[in-house]
Computed example of a mutant assay.
Amino acid sequence: MISIFPPDIAHAAAMALLATSFAGSFITAAFGIGGGIAFLAACAVLLPPAAIIPIHGIVQLGSNSVRALMFMRHLMWSALPAFVIGSLVGVAIGGSVVVSLPGWVVQSVVSLFILWVVFARPPKWLAQWPLVTGLISSFLTMFFGATGPFVAGYVKALKLDRHAHSATHAALMTVQHGLKVAVFGVLGFAYADWAPFIVSLIAAGACGTWVGKLVLGRMTDHGFHRILNGILVLIALRLIWGGLSGFL
């Protein structure tokens, strides 16, 4: 009998990751952002270091793919082509760069960007530059893992309703995580060894997305954006704290 649990982690840790995958997908589907960061935090605590970014990436690929399919009729397709081109360039650069950016630098820059998007009025050009968003976020994701809040800043500048926001953000993150997973596969990460557990994590995330979609349907656009802003601020403050801790 094939066990879904990989040999490198304890069963309790595996169950905690399954629960976090469900909860993270629920949060992202219902409130627009936050689930990827929560799942990355769990991965950082419970997975071997070499597996953190690849496993996070492939599970988020599955989660965002499911969310994009569930909300497909609301998707803003015009945002995809330029974002895909930028993401291809960003992932290629990130996968070939030898040096890593200091973690505290990445955290600080992303947190300031998030706070700017929430509290300032984003300039019109931000909504018109998906290529730049794709390039920068895809480069950063090779080192940082979860750049969903960065992409959410761009999507927020598009001023979409709650369903279109969720659909478009999910599609863009599917592109980004798909490219990242492919690069880590080329670099030699053995996804096959983790396959049963990865499928289970994605299934748990799909259930969370379905429940989150039901919650989203009961919200108003105004309520959705208020909660989204609140979550983004909390993420930004956590990143600032992490950046200061890393610097000091």
Rank of each mutant, 00 (worst) to 15 (best):
A146H: 07
V233I: 15
G36Q: 03
L187N: 12
I33T: 14
M219H: 04
F5H: 08
M142S: 04
W241V: 14
A82I: 06
L234G: 09
F247E: 00
G223Q: 12
P149F: 04
F5N: 05
I2D: 01
T220G: 11
C207R: 00
G153H: 07
S245A: 13
L140H: 05
L40T: 04
C43I: 01
A206S: 13
G94D: 10
A50D: 12
A12G: 00
F143N: 07
L179W: 03
I58F: 09
G134P: 08
G243Q: 01
Q176H: 11
A14K: 02
A167R: 09
H56G: 02
R218D: 04
L244R: 06
Q176L: 15
I55Q: 07
L131E: 10
G185H: 10
M219Y: 07
V233W: 03
Q176M: 15
A190Y: 12
S245F: 01
G242S: 02
V215F: 12
V183A: 15
A152N: 13
A195N: 03
V105C: 09
W241S: 03
G103H: 08
A79I: 04
V91K: 02
I198P: 03
S108K: 00
I27T: 08
T141I: 11
G178F: 10
L228G: 05
R73T: 14
V151P: 05
P7S: 08
M15T: 12
A236R: 10
V99I: 12
M76R: 15
F26T: 07
L228V: 12
A79C: 10
S166L: 05
V59M: 07
H163P: 05
G62R: 02
H11C: 00
A13R: 09
A12Y: 01
L140V: 13
L179K: 05
F139N: 03
H163A: 14
A68V: 13
A164L: 11
S87E: 07
F71K: 09
G35K: 05
K159H: 13
V199Y: 02
V118N: 09
R73C: 04
A50F: 04
V110N: 02
P196S: 05
H225P: 03
A236L: 13
D161Q: 09
V89A: 15
L214P: 00
G24N: 01
G134V: 12
Y154G: 11
L140G: 08
